[in-house]
Write a protein that binds this DNA or RNA. Structure first.
Length: 457
RNA sequence: GGCCACGUGGCGGAGUGGUUACGCAACGGUCUGCAAAACCGUGUACCCCGGUUCAAUUCCGGGCGUGGCCUCCA
């Protein structure tokens, strides 16, 4: 089956066949993190989803024929505020946060993007775009700001399906006095002393810094060109961020589109509630990674189609863990075999990972009945979406950080129990089993006489 | 207030104008000193109200519910 993708811009009834501009260089841009704090589990969703797409594109077009750009936003008012709050230099905050982000996404089994550009290293490109927008009268200077004049773009609002009239009517925010129209957005703004600042474009004397949207237009242009294939991100970015990116890029380059496929992942809730610091259910990826292997998070994310809303629950994590336990057990010492066609077709159908997982369950079932080919297929097929990347031994050895288990003590108890079993003192053997169970440890007596243990969740 | 999504069995979650999704849990069985794991087998569904149709969970309209955006939040 050919790859089909759903495009937010055209909103087709069904996902449409993907046709790259250049099959020798398939180009994808995904909005990356603003580096001011640990990534939460909602931030992890697009990272995982688009990693699956990246892997699939590499599979279809060849690893050297796919360029995946995921930016790092390291200039932003939230960053300034947080650095001030913590009393550390901005650069220290962004470097530290970036390092944490990198460690987290690696633990989630995500491949590094081809390019990870930083906003602060693309100020020149941003200024070039801004100058051109001013020259072409899509943007204007007012009180040391450069603003994009939305009225100059007739089809502004197409991505988010909003008309200018609606936006003006529904506006709830006080309009800055220097804006010509309430919907105009900032390309460049003046910096106060102490804020990050660069020499301003468009003849503005006061040093300033870029607005939020222009960085993505600049970095996409620099690394992917004027138009490219896929642009992705969370659904909350549709408006205003992506709408404004489109406006900037298309008006600068006079192109009918910025990207041919706009892909947006759905939102995430936690235990049926929206995730918010005020709700007290704000979960960072880092916290979860202390309690679960990264692949459990990854599988848990992929059990729901990327465009659907997802409810993140502890119960779901347990189920995902259990599934992987089983898969790992069946693929011990198995070399990857053939990619299952159902798997390939499901992932190719707008990343239908839940359906793909059903294909893996099918292989699991066959492998459980003793089929070596199915076990090899299970491994190869799981690899396509970045699962089963550890050895079974590594998987079995994984322990949550919070679990302070005295391994030697456990082994000692198991030995005592086996001695009791040998002496047919089953009462004592069961007492030890219960003792370990109370510690959260479950025993499994293997047919060959050995006993293994695992942590119950 | 405006715009946009989503609502499937106990739970998670695909899909479809008429035919078993799948997984977890549950229950029964095999195995086991007892368990666990594994394997075999079994059950329950499409938010509400209209409409279109021979036929709707699937299409259309309305309602209710949940969520997102309209405030530089994935």
């Amino acid at each position: 089956m050919v790859l089909k993708l759903y495009d937010t811009l055209t909103r087709p009834a069904k996902p449409q066949p993907f046709r790259p501009i250049d099959p020798k260089n398939v180009r994808m841009y995904v909005c990356g993190p603003t580096v001011y704090d640990f990534a939460h589990i909602g931030n992890a969703r697009p990272v995982i989803v688009f990693d699956v797409l990246f892997r699939l594109l590499r599979h279809l077009y060849g690893p050297e024929h796919v360029t995946y750009v995921r930016n790092i936003t390291d200039v932003d008012d939230k960053i300034n505020a947080r650095a001030a709050e913590r009393g550390i230099p901005i650069r220290q905050l962004t470097e530290e946060t970036y390092a944490n982000f990198n460690a987290d996404v690696a633990a989630l089994g995500c491949l590094p993007p081809t390019v990870e550009p930083r906003a602060t290293e693309h100020i020149v490109e941003m200024k070039t775009l801004i100058e051109r927008l001013v020259t072409n009268e899509f943007a204007y200077v007012a009180e040391d700001h450069v603003l994009f004049n939305v009225k100059k773009m007739p089809d502004y609002g197409r991505l988010s399906k909003r008309s200018l009239d609606e936006m003006i009517a529904g506006a709830r925010v006080e309009v800055a006095p220097y804006k010509r129209d309430s919907t105009d957005f900032v390309l460049w703004k003046p910096s106060k002393p102490g804020e990050p600042a660069w020499p301003s474009p468009a003849g503005i004397a006061t040093p300033g810094r870029p607005g939020w949207h222009i960085e993505c237009s600049a970095m996409a242009w620099k690394h992917l060109g004027e138009t490219f294939d896929i642009h992705g991100g969370g659904i909350d970015l549709v408006f205003p961020h992506h709408e404004n990116e489109i406006a900037q890029s298309r008006c600068v380059f006079h192109t009918p589109v910025m990207a041919n496929y706009w892909m947006h992942n759905g939102f995430l809730q936690v235990e049926g509630e929206k995730m918010a610091k005020s709700e007290g259910n704000f979960i960072t990826t880092r916290e979860l990674l202390a309690e679960w292997p990264g692949e459990v998070l990854r599988l848990n994310m992929l059990r729901t189609h990327y465009r659907q809303p997802i409810d993140w629950t502890e119960a779901g994590m347990r189920e995902s863990k259990r599934t992987l336990d089983h898969w790992y057990e069946l693929t011990d010492d198995v070399a990857p075999g053939y990619l299952c066609a159902d798997m390939h077709d499901a992932v190719s159908d707008d990343l239908n990972t839940p359906k793909a997982l059903a294909a893996l369950h099918e292989l699991r079932s066959e492998a459980g009945k003793g089929s070596k080919g199915a076990a090899a297929g299970l491994k190869a097929s799981a690899h396509l979406i970045g699962l089963l990347q550890m050895t079974t031994r590594q998987w079995a050895a994984w322990r949550p950080k919070s679990l302070a288990i005295d391994k030697a003590h456990v082994e000692c108890l198991i030995e005592a129990r086996n001695a009791a079993r040998k002496a047919k003192n089953f009462k004592e053997a069961d007492r030890i089993r219960d003792e370990l169970k109370a510690m959260g440890i479950e025993l499994e007596d293997k047919p060959d006489g050995t006993t293994i243990w695992k942590v119950r969740r």
